[in-house]
Write a protein that binds this DNA or RNA. Structure first.
Length: 381
DNA sequence: AACGTGGACAACCGCGTGTGC
DNA sequence: CGCACACGCGGTTGTCCACGT
C-alpha cells in the first residue's frame, strides 16, 4: 500500500510548460485566485497538469515580481550567512530575499555559490597553512611546556609510555604561551548565532563526524586512554559559541595541519587521522556523501603540499631537540639531579621522532612517529 | 558539422506537516 | 483520536544549451 497519488499520472502532462499553458494559468489566478485548492485548479482551467505542478509553476515562475538570475553580492552574502546558520532551509532563506524563490536559491547555491565559497575557503586555508607551518612547530614545543606545567603528564605513542614530568626536574624556560589551537590557525573558527537547528542536530552531527574520522583511520585520545573518560558527542560541539558543522570543521582540521587532525579545538577529545590510513573501501553515511567527497579532494591537495611542510617541521624538530637537550643539561647542572634513566631514555629516543598534535585541554598528547609518516607518504606518492 | 560534456535551470517526486471531519 | 486530504518543502532528476574537441 503506497501513498495515494495526488492526480491521475497517466492523464497529466509532464515536462516544460508551454506559453499557452502559462497564459491560461496566469490569467485564471489573476482573475480568480487559486481558490485554495491547487488540486482542483487545473480541471477548472482545462489544463492537463497536476495541481502540484501548477502551484510550482505559479510560485516559481508566473507569480508577479519574481526575479530570475542576477544575484547581487549582498544577496550572495545573505544566502551564505543563512545557509551557514540554518542549513538548507531554502524557504526560510527565500523569505529574506524578496522576489526570490526557494527553488531559485537552491539551484543558485548548488551550481554556483557553493563552489564560490569553497574556492575562497581553500585559498584562505592555503595562505594560512603556508604562513603558519613554521610557527606551528614552535607552538607545539611551547604547548608541551605548557602542558608540563598543567598536568605533568605526557602520553607517548606505541607502548603509551607515560612520564611523570614532575619527577624529571626539567624546567621550562617558556611558560607564558597560549595553547595552540589548529582551528584558530586555520582562521575558520566562526561565530555562531544561538540557533535551534544546530542544537537539534548536534548529537547526530558529532556521531557522524566521529564515525567518519574513525573510518578514515582516525582515533580518539580517550579510546586509548580510558583513564581520561570523556563524553564524545557533546565534547565535539561545545562551547556553542563556536560554529560546528561537519563541513567547516572537517575542512578546517583536514586542511590546517599535517598529517594529523583535531576534531574540535576546544574538545577534550582528540582525534588524529593520517592520510596513509585511508581504507580502500569507505562506507560513508548517505547524509554526508558530498562532504565526504570534498574532504577526500582536500586531502589530495594536502598531500601535494606535504613535502614542503615536512621539511619545515623537520627543521623545527631539530631545533626543538637541541633546545630540549640544552634544557636538560642546564637543569641537571642547576639542580644537581637528573631525571630517572628510564624517563630520560624515553625522552631522548622519542622526542626527535615525534609529530605532535594538540589537545587543548591537555589531558593527553597524541604523537605519530615521524619516520612512519615520511615513509607512508613516500609510499603514497 | 557532429558529437560529447558539463553547467544552469526547470520540473518532478516523496515525505512531513497541518487541518478539517 | 484517527483518518484523509492538501500543502509545502527539500532532494533529485530531466532538459536545454553553450562550449570544447
Amino acid at each position: 500500500m503506497g501513498r495515494a497519488p495526488c492526480c491521475d499520472k497517466a492523464s497529466v502532462k509532464k515536462g516544460p510548460w508551454s506559453p499557452e499553458e502559462d497564459a491560461k494559468l496566469k490569467d485564471y489566478i489573476e482573475q480568480h485566485g487559486t481558490g485554495g485548492n491547487w488540486i482542483a485548479l487545473p480541471q477548472k482551467i482545462g489544463l492537463k497538469r497536476c495541481g502540484k505542478s501548477c502551484r510550482l509553476r505559479w510560485l516559481n515562475y508566473l507569480r508577479p515580481h519574481i526575479k530570475h538570475g542576477g544575484f547581487t553580492e549582498e544577496e550572495d552574502n545573505i544566502i551564505c550567512s543563512l545557509y551557514i546558520n540554518i542549513g538548507s532551509r531554502w524557504s526560510i532563506i527565500a523569505a529574506q530575499l524578496p522576489g526570490r524563490t526557494d527553488n531559485d536559491i537552491k539551484n543558485y547555491w548548488n551550481t554556483r555559490l557553493k563552489k564560490k565559497l569553497l574556492g575562497k575557503q581553500q585559498r584562505k586555508q592555503q595562505e594560512a597553512r603556508r604562513s603558519m607551518s613554521f610557527q606551528k612547530a614552535r607552538d607545539i614545543k611551547r604547548q608541551n611546556n605548557h602542558h608540563h606545567r598543567d598536568s605533568n603528564l605526557i602520553m607517548f605513542p606505541a607502548g603509551s609510555t607515560t612520564l611523570d614530568m614532575s619527577q624529571t626536574h626539567i624546567t621550562s624556560s617558556i611558560s607564558s604561551y597560549p595553547y595552540y589551537k589548529p582551528a584558530e590557525v586555520a582562521g575558520l573558527v566562526m561565530n555562531n548565532q544561538d540557533d535551534d537547528h544546530h542544537h537539534l542536530k548536534d548529537d547526530n552531527q558529532a556521531a557522524s563526524v566521529r564515525n567518519l574520522l574513525v573510518k578514515l583511520g582516525g582515533r580518539f585520545s580517550n579510546d586509548d586512554h580510558p583513564q581520561y573518560p570523556q563524553p564524545i558527542t557533546n565534547s565535539l560541539l561545545y562551547p556553542p559559541i563556536q560554529m560546528f558543522t561537519p563541513e567547516n570543521e572537517l575542512y578546517a582540521h583536514y586542511s590546517s595541519s599535517i598529517p594529523c587532525f583535531t576534531v574540535n579545538p576546544t574538545s577534550t577529545s582528540t582525534a588524529t587521522v593520517c592520510p596513509h590510513q585511508l581504507p580502500s573501501n569507505i562506507e560513508e553515511g548517505p547524509d554526508h556523501s558530498d562532504m565526504f567527497v570534498q574532504e577526500i579532494e582536500n586531502l589530495a591537495v594536502e598531500l601535494d603540499e606535504l613535502p614542503q611542510q615536512l621539511d619545515d617541521l623537520e627543521s623545527c624538530l631539530i631545533g626543538m631537540e637541541m633546545e630540549m637537550e640544552m634544557e636538560m643539561v642546564m637543569s641537571t647542572t642547576t639542580t644537581g639531579t637528573s631525571s630517572t634513566p628510564s624517563a630520560e631514555s624515553s625522552i631522548n629516543s622519542s622526542w626527535g621522532d615525534m609529530m605532535m598534535m594538540s589537545n587543548c585541554n591537555c589531558n593527553s598528547l597524541v604523537y605519530y612517529p615521524h619516520d612512519q609518516i615520511v615513509s607512508d607518504y613516500s609510499n603514497l606518492i
